[in-house]
């Protein structure tokens, strides 16, 4: 098993932390993982992206030109990464703010309205966890239990009361994908 993923969007949408949670979940499942962020000014409002690789075997390059799965959260990222999904791969996108829809027919294209879902969960910060749930439904790279174990390990104790809400968001995201 080897999954090469890019997650891209605006800085502040939780792109880097969604990648980090996925990487930690991979670690919990005993996989090899790399997490390579675009770093610097992107964190403060520009476009941000992160490449995450989860694999059973040693990982060579943390930098990639094509991906098995892309999760894109704005138009710029969709424009940039749609062509970089491998044939047969998966493109997950948030349709809000998207005016030029993806056009590839050789990949699986899945819209996930995570904004509405996070509003229903009454916490906009659950946005990226909804998307992570959707991603893990499409691509069962790691189990939800591994994500929860990763959160428990990496979140400071004072935030542990938020773990059930995050789990709810993950499950909601999963339910948005057929």
């Amino acid at each position: 098993m080897k999954e090469e993923i890019v997650i891209a969007g605006f800085g502040g949408q939780g792109v880097l932390s969604m990648g980090k949670i996925l990487a930690y979940a991979g670690l919990m499942d005993g996989k090899e993982v790399t997490w390579m962020p675009s770093y610097g000014p992107e964190q403060r409002g520009g476009t941000a992206n992160v490449t995450v690789i989860v694999s059973d075997n040693a990982i060579s390059s943390p930098v990639l030109d094509t991906f098995d799965t892309a999760v894109v959260l704005n138009q710029q990222s969709l424009d940039k990464f749609e062509s970089k999904v491998k044939p047969g791969g998966t493109l997950i996108y948030d349709p809000s703010g998207i005016h030029r829809l993806p056009s590839r027919t050789d990949i699986r294209v899945i819209p996930v309205d995570a904004i509405t879902a996070s509003i229903e969960l009454k916490n906009s910060k659950t946005y990226n966890m909804v998307l992570l749930g959707a991603l893990l439904k499409c691509r069962p790279i790691v189990g939800i239990d591994a994500v929860i174990r990763g959160l428990r390990k990496t979140l400071p104790e004072r935030h542990h009361h938020l773990i059930p809400l995050n789990e709810e968001a993950l499950r909601k995201g999963m339910s948005l994908v057929d």
Partner: peptide, 10 residues
Amino acid sequence: DGVVGQMMEK
């Protein structure tokens, strides 16, 4: 370099 400084792995 910035890659190996900024990336995370095991």
